[in-house]
Simulated scan of single mutants.
Amino acid sequence: MTTRSTVWAISGHRVSGLDMEAQEVSLHKVFSSDYDFRIPDYQRPYAWETEQATQLLIDLEEALERGNDEPYFLGSIVLVKANRNAHADVIDGQQRLTTLTILLALLRDLTEDPELRSDLNKLVIEPGNKVRPLGPRPRRTGRGPRARGGARPPSRARALPRS
């Protein structure tokens, strides 16, 4: 399954106007060093209920069952992002982005495969890069003082009983 999302990035620092660019990117690219998502304080807090999160999971499951024949369109994410800078304010799409981050963190915490755990952790937390130089940080930071405190190390969540 190829999962894609359209990322609309509004960029530029000119007072007279802004450049707007849209591009379709894979989910793997969305959760990469190219994006440092920040939820501006003026955005509403995370508000999805079980119903919306469940629908996203059902959509993902159906896309997995279809295979690679047709890509799964995750939806649009609207960002304010300067060129060549990973910092991106999320204007639209934060509910999906947050839900996917929670899902990836949950899968990371539940897997017993150390290699898979490491790969999933890199999607949730930027591991850093001394050459670029990037420090470790969460891929998505939210609103308020707690969100600015940084990422917590991966916990060892107990595996849920299998039915």
Score class of each variant (00 low, 15 high):
Thr2Ser: 10
Thr2Trp: 10
Ser5Val: 13
Trp8Ile: 15
Ala9Lys: 14
Ala9Gly: 13
Ile10Tyr: 15
Ser11Phe: 13
Glu21Leu: 06
Val25Arg: 13
Ser26His: 03
His28Val: 14
Ser32Phe: 11
Asp34Tyr: 09
Tyr35Cys: 13
Asp41His: 07
Pro45Lys: 03
Glu49Arg: 14
Thr50Arg: 11
Thr50Cys: 09
Thr50Met: 05
Ile58Tyr: 11
Glu62Asp: 04
Leu64Cys: 10
Leu64Gly: 06
Leu64Ile: 12
Leu64Ala: 14
Arg66Asp: 10
Gly67Asn: 10
Glu70Leu: 09
Glu70Met: 09
Tyr72Thr: 05
Tyr72Pro: 09
Gly75Cys: 03
Leu79Trp: 07
Val80Gly: 14
Ala82Asn: 12
Ala82Lys: 14
Arg84Phe: 12
Asn85Met: 11
Ala86Met: 08
Ala86Val: 05
Ala88Val: 02
Asp92Gln: 01
Asp92Ser: 04
Asp92Pro: 01
Gln94Gly: 08
Gln94Ala: 06
Gln95Ser: 01
Arg96Pro: 03
Leu97Trp: 06
Thr98Asp: 05
Thr99Lys: 00
Ile102His: 11
Leu103Arg: 11
Leu104Val: 02
Asp109Lys: 06
Thr111Cys: 02
Glu112Gly: 04
Pro114Asn: 05
Pro114Gln: 06
Pro114Tyr: 08
Glu115Ser: 11
Gly128Met: 10
Asn129Leu: 07
Asn129Trp: 06
Leu134Asp: 15
Arg137Leu: 12
Arg137Gly: 04
Pro138Tyr: 03
Pro145Glu: 02
Arg146Gln: 15
Ala151Gly: 05
Ser155Glu: 09
Arg156Cys: 08
Ala157Val: 07
Ala159Asp: 00
Ala159Arg: 07
Leu160Tyr: 01
